[in-house]
């Protein structure tokens, strides 16, 4: 009995320490959110949303406009390349071309500051673009293309093969079939990929510091020789400001950033849940973590927390049903 008691104790110790680990994960989340929101709210002025940055303080209007413009540009450039890449990898890529997918995944591991440095040396200095919108958009696009590619590929792989077979049986042209029966059902996944890309472009600092520079007025639409203000700069440049107005600006910018990111997370969840509610073939949702779910693995087209999905090996067939 003594041995059994010891085993029970060991069991309890192990799960207690796992619960402690869970607490260690939740505490920083709550601490960060609480710290940033409380600081931001106590410093908040509504006029920050309507005035440009000025001297040692001012507002965030120029940065909000700049960040929106940069993010829009990134979505256009990286969205085009990334969605096209994902589509090709899922639909056309002959087997054995792992290097294309591998290169995309490896590109996602390149530190953002390295991209910023190369963008600065090659685009800003060597090509004489100066601090410019185009340089920032290109560098950020390189950073987010792998995410969009991956999410697009996974989303398209999750479209049942039966859709294609049905389309072909009806004699659809391959382009029409691709648009209506492959890309359309995969749209929620593709949109989620774009949202991840938007969240990254809103939150990045290092690649932008030396490519778009900073400008205290709203952005012009010129592609080169056009420095642009952005939100993360206001945090990075003013958090140690000697002026209370500067530090206030940093706190406000941090609050706006957090709100942006939370909004994007909520929107991506909405996209996923709406698409599941209205999908023609409503997927049987087995509660996460309940035991039977693991006996018969259900493909999860729902992206996980960090831009991948749980099931990569899934090759387009729904489980037998």
């Amino acid at each position: 009995m003594a041995a059994a008691g010891w085993r029970k104790t060991k069991n309890r110790i192990m799960w207690t320490s796992c619960a402690a680990a869970l607490a260690l994960l939740v505490i920083p989340v709550v601490w960060i959110m609480w710290g940033i929101v409380a600081d931001g709210v106590s410093h908040w002025r509504w006029s920050a949303l309507t005035t440009d940055q000025l001297g040692n303080g001012g507002g965030l209007l120029n940065a909000i406009e700049g960040t929106s413009l940069i993010t829009f540009g990134v979505l256009v450039v990286a969205g085009t390349v990334g969605i096209a890449g994902g589509l090709y990898l899922a639909e056309y890529c002959p087997p054995g071309r792992g290097i294309l997918r591998g290169a995309s995944e490896v590109l996602s591991g390149v530190p953002s500051i390295v991209l910023g440095l190369v963008g600065y040396l090659e685009l800003v200095v060597t090509l004489h673009w100066g601090f410019s919108l185009a340089a920032g958009i290109i560098v950020l696009s390189v950073l987010v293309i792998p995410y969009i590619t991956k999410m697009t590929e996974v989303a398209i792989r999750n479209v049942p093969t039966g859709y294609r077979e049905g389309g072909e049986a009806l004699g659809m042209s391959s382009g029409y079939l691709l648009r209506r029966l492959v890309v359309k059902p995969a749209l929620p996944g593709i949109v989620t990929g774009l949202i991840v890309a938007a969240a990254i472009s809103v939150g990045e600092t290092a690649p932008l510091l030396y490519t778009v520079g900073y400008y205290t007025k709203g952005p012009s639409l010129a592609l080169t020789h056009s420095p642009v203000g952005f939100l993360t700069y206001d945090v990075y440049a003013f958090y140690t400001s000697q002026f209370a107005s500067g530090r206030q600006l940093a706190h406000e910018a941090a609050l706006v950033l957090v709100v942006f990111v939370l909004l994007l997370i909520v929107v991506s969840r909405l996209v996923v849940s709406l698409s599941q509610r209205f999908s023609p073939e409503r997927q049987r949702r087995v509660p996460l973590g309940s035991r039977p779910s693991r006996a018969a693995p259900v493909p999860q087209p729902v992206p996980n927390a960090i831009g991948g999905t749980a099931d990569e090996g899934f090759s387009g067939h729904l489980p037998s049903m």
Binding site: L25, V26, G203, E204
Partner: peptide, 27 residues
Amino acid sequence: SAGIGFCLEILAGVPSVVIGLWAFLTL
């Protein structure tokens, strides 16, 4: 566990400059 997943998303999504600000002032 879905709530914990939400926590993970927030932690992964918060810009690093914001985490830096929190770490500099508080942590």
